[in-house]
């Protein structure tokens, strides 16, 4: 009897390459729609890169990113999802004028006053976040 081989759609490079951190300025995704942004991010994640994004994705884009990565688990060998954390000044206490100013800036140029770290789960063991800092723990090889 011929054993049927499980179909995989790609191979995820696991741990053989050097660790690469990709800094992504907001301008790189500013003109992309949600699908374009997710595609760009997932493209880098699948190349085993850790992304430091200037700014943050909106709530809907974040949930689509999770959905997308869930679809890839099991279909791309070695891929186990992503780790993601954003740091922004959203919860900081500020005056009314400053709040209005920030909201107008957010509408005009997007939320650039934030930083997001995204990495493949096979490289990033855990990202812990406190209100004002992000800690990245990498997998031991």
């Amino acid at each position: 009897m011929v054993k049927k081989k499980k179909k995989v759609f790609g191979k995820f490079k696991k741990g053989k390459d050097n660790l690469t951190i990709h800094f992504m300025p907001y301008s790189e995704i500013a003109n992309e729609d949600a699908i374009g942004r997710i595609k760009k991010i997932m493209g880098l994640v699948l190349k085993n890169k850790i992304i430091i994004l200037q700014g943050k994705l909106d709530a809907d884009e974040e949930v689509r990113l999770i959905e997308n990565s869930m679809t890839l688990i099991g279909n791309i060998k070695g891929f186990a999802g992503i780790e993601i954390a954003s740091l922004s000044g959203e919860n900081e206490n500020r005056g009314l004028f400053e709040g209005v100013r920030r909201n107008i800036a957010k509408i005009l140029v997007g939320e650039q006053d934030a930083i997001t770290v995204i990495g493949p789960a096979s490289v990033v063991k855990e990202i812990t976040k406190d209100p004002k800092k992000i800690e990245l723990m990498l997998q031991r090889k």
Partner: peptide, 17 residues
């Protein structure tokens, strides 16, 4: 556990939207 996990923030953000 640490409440600042991105999953919690993403869920809440989506409910607000």
């Amino acid at each position: 556990a640490n409440p600042y996990s991105q999953v919690n923030i993403t869920i809440l953000g989506n409910l607000v939207v």
